[in-house]
Simulated assay, not measured.
Amino acid sequence: MSGFRSKRRLFAVPAIAFTLLAGTAEAQTNRIGGLYDITVAGLTIGRGTLSLVLQGNAYSAKVGLEPAGIGTLFSTGKGGAEAAGWLVGSKVMPSRYTMASRAANRDFYVSLTQGSGHIRSADVAPQFKPNKERIEVTKQHRQNAMDPLSAALVPVSVGKDGLGPAACKRKLPVFDGWTRFDIQLSFKETREVSGRGYDGPVVVCSAKWIPVAGHRPSTDSVKHMASSDMEAWFAPMGRKDVLVPYRITIPTRTGQLVVEASKLRLSDNERDQAAR
């Protein structure tokens, strides 16, 4: 089951990282594409891709993961996830999420339907085996929660505050299909980055993983994650009112896990041709 948990967390991490659709012909469309390196203790174990489309206040995001570098010696698994929804002020309001992957000759699948900031339905495979210690996920735990991919998008106000403490002043309630947890962000600093398709400031947030339900509190993996000091860097790619992950770090027992952008591409100031 340790591989099962690790695979789910990988999709929740970068992860933890991405009202109505504006219906006018002038709705601006921003497209962001990214390649991410995944390393542990400085060794490359995987590659990730990100595709994000922002059209008015609607978003559509897609990520893919596959082994790379030394990771190909231990795993042939790969997978991906997709999410869509709306940005309403400072809130993300997802509508759907799917994740499918294969690892260690096992298939993993999640399908969530969402609305009004809640998880409406969930279809997952495989199911957890019964365990008396596991905290049951109730209907209440699915209220005011979102999928892991939608949680990677950070709406902010335009201006200096967008890359200041206010950007990190939030708790992200996440449901991945099996477990419910919170990611508590807090402001650390701002930095300048360059040379990977984006030149400019990023806001650096400290992050804490808080288990809520679906977990077994006594397990070493849960204790380790809950006590780890994580970090997330966010950049205003394409639009100044929406931040996306640039770098995520998580301490593991085998070294620091880092998911970091290696190449970013953005296309902004476009108009939705299909709406004309």
Rank of each mutant, 00 (worst) to 15 (best):
V244C: 12
S90F: 06
R253Y: 03
L54C: 07
D220I: 10
A12C: 14
G115S: 15
T29D: 01
E82M: 12
E136W: 02
D37N: 10
A213P: 03
S186L: 08
T138M: 07
K7C: 15
R134D: 06
V244H: 10
L112Q: 04
K7P: 14
G117P: 10
W178P: 00
A61E: 01
L163P: 04
D176G: 11
T190H: 11
K139V: 11
A15I: 07
A41G: 09
N57D: 15
P211Q: 03
K91I: 05
K132M: 08
V212M: 04
F11L: 07
Q256R: 11
L257P: 09
Q273P: 15
F74G: 07
A274M: 11
A274S: 15
T29I: 10
T190F: 05
P130F: 00
R5N: 13
V242R: 00
V244I: 15
L52C: 07
V242S: 01
V88Y: 08
R247Q: 10
T49I: 02
V222W: 03
P245H: 08
E136G: 12
A25E: 11
L153K: 01
P236N: 07
L266K: 08
D229H: 09
K91P: 05
H224W: 14
I70C: 06
G162D: 03
L153E: 01
G159N: 06
F175W: 00
D229T: 08
L153T: 04
G162C: 02
P173T: 04
L50W: 01
G42R: 06
P126M: 02
F181I: 02
S51C: 07
Y198K: 07
R196F: 12
N131H: 10
T219H: 04
T29A: 03
S95C: 11
G69D: 09
E26K: 14
A275M: 09
G85I: 02
Q127S: 15
M99P: 04
N30S: 15
D220W: 01
K223E: 05
S6W: 09
A125F: 06
A152I: 11
G46Q: 05
G164S: 13
